Computed example of a mutant assay.
Amino acid sequence: MKNELRIALVQSPIIWEQPTSNRKYFSSKIASIKGKVDLIVLPEMFTTGFTMTPENLDVKEGDVTVEWMQDIAKEKNAAIVGSIIYSENGAYFNRLFFVNPNGEVRHYNKRHTFTLAGENEKYQAGNKHLILDYMGFKINLMICYDLRFPVWSRNTVDYDVLLYVANWPKPRIEAWDTLLKARAIENMSYCIGVNRVGKDEKGLEYVGHSAVYDALGKQLVFSEEEEILEVTLSKAHLVETRKKLRFLEDRDQFNLE
């Protein structure tokens, strides 16, 4: 079991509906990471911004971006994760991809589509979790609006890390801060949230607040600026915390059907 997981959180602006330009931008940002990291995290819809006009994009763009992620993962010898618009069988998905350094690809379709913006009318919702093992850490992967629904992230399988990628706007940023911390505490896990900065074509402003919390809700990193945040998670610290404070053993016993 690896005892540490080194993570880079890329908090960035996103160019509206310009996948090629965004891939070029993120290539440059990731190249600036000088030290060794194990996992690189990008925001939600990092090649387009949170657009409700997926039909404006070439349907091949999803596969192009996945291939780009594979190239980055191999080059940096690190896994990379983020969500993009993906077209499959005539439907659009807000799909998170987790790409290993060896090129293996896993994905998660956003469970809770954001009805306030009409995401439910444009993108098909998922219905399956993606909880995977990576370098000795069990990671539960989520997207943005999923953060508001604690039952969906409930820790019934003793995962170690809960990770959210997002486009979460400034008017509701206090909810983002509060819920990230709450998800960490209630699930006795690390909780990571990676948000964007800047303004989109709809005039919405994003102020980042990407952060990492430990199992007791202590904030390990935080930023409101365009930058790459680096943090190291300790499996030994998490195990020791859970051993000392056995809160998960007292969780309510129920299952979702």
Rank of each mutant, 00 (worst) to 15 (best):
K2H: 08
R6N: 13
I14D: 03
E17A: 12
Q18N: 15
N22H: 03
K24M: 14
S32A: 10
L39W: 03
F50K: 06
E55L: 02
D58H: 04
V59F: 04
K60A: 12
G62A: 05
D63M: 03
I80L: 08
G82V: 04
S87A: 13
N94I: 08
R95I: 07
R95E: 01
F97I: 06
N102C: 09
R106A: 13
H112N: 12
T113R: 09
F114T: 07
K122L: 02
K122M: 06
Q124A: 03
G126Y: 01
L132H: 09
D133Q: 14
G136M: 13
L147F: 01
F149G: 08
D158Q: 12
Y159F: 15
N167G: 02
N167M: 08
E174N: 14
E174H: 04
T178C: 05
L179A: 13
R183T: 05
I185G: 10
M188H: 09
I192V: 00
D200N: 03
Y206F: 15
V207L: 05
G208P: 04
A215G: 02
L216Y: 14
Q219L: 12
F222L: 12
S223T: 10
S223I: 02
E225R: 08
E227W: 07
L238S: 04
L238Y: 13
V239A: 15
E257F: 07
